[in-house]
Design a protein around this nucleic acid. Sequence first.
DNA 1: ACTGCTAAGGCAAATATTTTGCGTTAAGAG
DNA 2: CTCTTAACGCAAAATATTTGCCTTAGCAGT
Lengths: 194, 194
Amino acid sequence: MTPRPTLRPGGRSARVQQAVHTAVSALNDTVGREQLTIPLIAEHAGVTPSTIYRRWGSLRELLADVAAERLRPEAPLADTGSLEGDLMAWAGEFMEEMASRPGQQVMADALGSAGHEPRRRCHAWQCEQLALMLSRARDRGESALPEVDALIDGVMAPLIYRVSHAPETLCETRLRHWVRQALGSAGENFRATE
Amino acid sequence: MTPRPTLRPGGRSARVQQAVHTAVSALNDTVGREQLTIPLIAEHAGVTPSTIYRRWGSLRELLADVAAERLRPEAPLADTGSLEGDLMAWAGEFMEEMASRPGQQVMADALGSAGHEPRRRCHAWQCEQLALMLSRARDRGESALPEVDALIDGVMAPLIYRVSHAPETLCETRLRHWVRQALGSAGENFRATE
DNA sequence: ACTGCTAAGGCAAATATTTTGCGTTAAGAG
DNA sequence: CTCTTAACGCAAAATATTTGCCTTAGCAGT
């Protein structure tokens, strides 16, 4: 009763995926993003190029897959004692990473794929992190909490927009402004009317 | 005293660019986005592939260039009599275009390039349009107007985020919510503190 | 454990693409 | 009108991509 018809997460398949992802990251740091090619990646991963072509289809999709993985939160999400603090810490770290040239490349790779599974995954993770923060805030007894969607629209969306379109305008002050505004306007949340 | 060292906007160069852009759009509508290749585009544009490689570098950059062009506002910007109306009309049309599968491809192409000139251009145009709306609103005598940045962060950013990450959540109600909120919180604008 | 089934990988030949060197054309300056 | 040179065309060389066929190894049933 697995939802997927027949995946094979077992042994080899997973090892290949791991090896390819590792090779992409390693080569990205050594030869540089622009020099990456599938034959080169395949060689470093110890697989044949056709394996990569069959599994990912193109370099673009492969890079999007790897980029999405890099965008996945790893640290267990600090607990600073307040929702505002948690948001600033988490989004602040994200902002710092994405403010760099390589960070912007990662973002472009993640946003540039034809399929949208990679972007969906990023969105889902971000929602999870925000939901966890909100849940902690609720446990702490904070009131007038915003909804996840309001934080996505109010904080993550402008952050990502500016990483892509105007990275030089990023700064902590601006981030704090978004966070405060999103927290301040809790209660005026979006309601679907259908 | 041209700012650019030595561009050649004259005759031939411009014709080639035009022909290539046209070919990309035409082929995109006929053979489909995934079948596009530089040799194919070159043939339809009546130029040799090497011309395209030298000028754009790769298919990714070419598609980003064309996608950015498609994102450029064409219509003269309707005047509905109120800032809220103008915003809803303009952003609403944008949303409708981007809600479709091809629209999402255009967005992905524009966001996926290595260089960020295409994204910069989109941002600049959006700012221009918003500034024009604000200017009209001011002439009309509307008060408590937001700043361009607040509209970018409050309306365009969430719109684009959701086009990329969760297109099925787009709807007019949500758009109206962003617009109202951005207009309502005018006065609480971001101020750089450095 | 053993066996059968099949998704996933390897290999290599056939295609298609990208890159490059060199000659030519035409835009822009004086 | 002449000169300079950015931009293009062409074609050969280097790379990358696709595809057919074979082999390997998860996984399920017994």
